[in-house]
């Protein structure tokens, strides 16, 4: 059983508190939606959870069947999609996925990468350079990248950004599939997404306080 705990997470920049003492527990099959106005720290919180930046204080733990997963192996259990994350534009989509498979030390083959591209509806453009992609196509490729290692926890920062209707449906499908085997934490400003995905909702305000719905 997967258990994710945010324990009193606080972040400040040069003494200015972004948010403080965020506590939340998330179980397998759930989706936590982080919402709040611009500048409330949604993206910062997701980056802390991804291990990309350090919190000022507090802890984030993932445990499976009571066993705590080590911090240094966190990347093996996390998938991250964010507007701040870019893939290699001078490589094709397939080359990108193959590179990340190899650099992760996974055994998956080219067929696996093609299957993932098909899942995000990019199979026809798998051989094109990512630099030639539209922003929506790049967003889809980020999902393929995040799902490459079948993570337990999917962290999604504005997942519906730049996506058309088909893309939105794809996000919905990915989130519901992810909830079958793990959990999802996503941040959004869109009230429709909050209502659609939010099994648990964490609202941040500009004063650095958080409210749990």
């Amino acid at each position: 059983m997967l258990l994710i705990e945010l324990q009193k997470i606080t972040k400040d920049y040069n003494g200015h508190i972004i948010f403080s003492d965020i506590c939340e527990t998330l179980r397998e099959g759930s989706c936590l939606v982080i919402t709040g106005p611009n500048g409330s720290g949604k993206t910062t919180l997701l980056k802390i959870l991804a291990g990309l930046i350090r919190p000022a204080s507090g802890k984030f733990t993932i445990s499976v069947d009571g066993t705590l997963l080590a911090d240094e192996n966190r990347k093996d259990y996390l998938g991250f999609v964010s507007p701040d994350l870019y893939l290699y534009e001078e490589l094709t989509a397939l080359e990108n996925l193959e590179f990340f498979v190899k650099v992760r030390g996974l055994a998956e083959s080219e067929e696996y990468c093609l299957k993932l591209l098909k899942k995000v509806q990019l199979d026809k453009w798998g051989g094109s350079l990512v630099g030639t992609y539209s922003t929506g196509m790049k967003q889809r490729l980020k999902f393929a990248y995040a799902l490459l290692h079948q993570p337990l926890l999917l962290l999604l920062d504005e997942p519906g950004a730049n996506l058309d209707e088909e893309g939105q449906a794809l996000v919905q499908e990915i989130i519901s599939q992810q909830k079958e085997t793990g959990a999802v934490i996503l941040s959004t400003n869109d009230p429709a997404e909050v209502a659609r995905y939010g099994d648990q909702v964490l609202k941040l305000d500009e004063a650095g306080r958080c409210f749990i719905k």
Partner: peptide, 19 residues
Amino acid sequence: RGTVYALKLSTTPEIIYLG
């Protein structure tokens, strides 16, 4: 190019240094 996050989330710092 902003690819640093994708790389950080995919492998260990030692592998990145060696590569």
